[in-house]
Design a protein around this nucleic acid. Sequence first.
DNA 1: CGCCACGTCTGCGAAATCCGCAATCCCAGC
DNA 2: GCTGGGATTGCGGATTTCGCAGACGTGGCG
Lengths: 172, 172
Amino acid sequence: MHSEVVASRSADQRDSSRESRSGTPQLDAVSLAIIQQLQEDGRRPYAAIGKAVGLSEAAVRQRVQKLLDQGVMQIVAVTDPLTVGFRRQAMVGVNVEGDVESIADALTAMSEVEYVVMTAGSFDILAEIVCEDDDHLLDVINKRIRALPGVRSTESFVYLKLKKQTYMWGTR
Amino acid sequence: MHSEVVASRSADQRDSSRESRSGTPQLDAVSLAIIQQLQEDGRRPYAAIGKAVGLSEAAVRQRVQKLLDQGVMQIVAVTDPLTVGFRRQAMVGVNVEGDVESIADALTAMSEVEYVVMTAGSFDILAEIVCEDDDHLLDVINKRIRALPGVRSTESFVYLKLKKQTYMWGTR
DNA sequence: CGCCACGTCTGCGAAATCCGCAATCCCAGC
DNA sequence: GCTGGGATTGCGGATTTCGCAGACGTGGCG
């Protein structure tokens, strides 16, 4: 009933030969299993997680703390923006002349911008915007984003209906 | 030190005149403050939250449980896909002929698709895809998405660099 | 007005959980 | 074979969670 993870106890928690280029350590099967548990319920007690992954309560606690410290995961409350009073959302595609990264940084600094990613394709940057109403959205796009020096053009996609949003990376 | 929320105790926790059209109840200031606390740390103890928002431990516990039951928020672990072994991500814009929603549903059913939203603009649907490698990504886009009957065209934006991703709705 | 129903808040004791720490184990290097 | 570092375990003590009974405030109704 517990989908026990075997993983030959205390194998390679951090095998330095498997570091990704960004310096982020790879995760072993046990840590992955711990993350999965916490993706189902971020408040699940350490003892319960330990039983599921085959580790003691203290060991789970230690690994969770390390994962948090390393920034591999965070345990947070996520909400539906609509119920929290944000009624307009949009994805904005941005084309840039000159330094793309500095524009991306400028977008990152805006509190209405939830999500910024540099892409390959017909946009240089995609940014998701969360606003309270149409006026607010219009203001952010036309007055603030298009005003940035280096922004050549933008294209907006106003959200009509959010169909799916999961946080289950690795739970497949 | 605690940014106390006053809120004239036991005022309108759920004022039925302020229901949004979707039937989701509006949140009062105290619940919002609780959510903010949990957005900073999803495992923060109820007593600490209570001190911050001016409520007893039991009351906070009750409200959090209700927020979870109502689906207003969820407390989960979120990770950086890269560190969990997903090396390719892309946003895909989809154009549809016929029923948009049924295509959106089909995308929603795919485990590689993290995010599906119906939009106004030059795409009918935006979908975010999380894959293990290029082959996997290619397979999902060309074999699975473009094969859906009703999909007229797609345009892909492969992620080069994720600059920002927050879960702080309402914390502004 | 009195009364009741309903929802929320509080206080409190019992059970479960979290936390820190010292001891142990395991592997790699010398 | 010995040693060092990291991971794990076991264990009390402090803290937190949990369930529940009682209090409080509001609104409906005879």
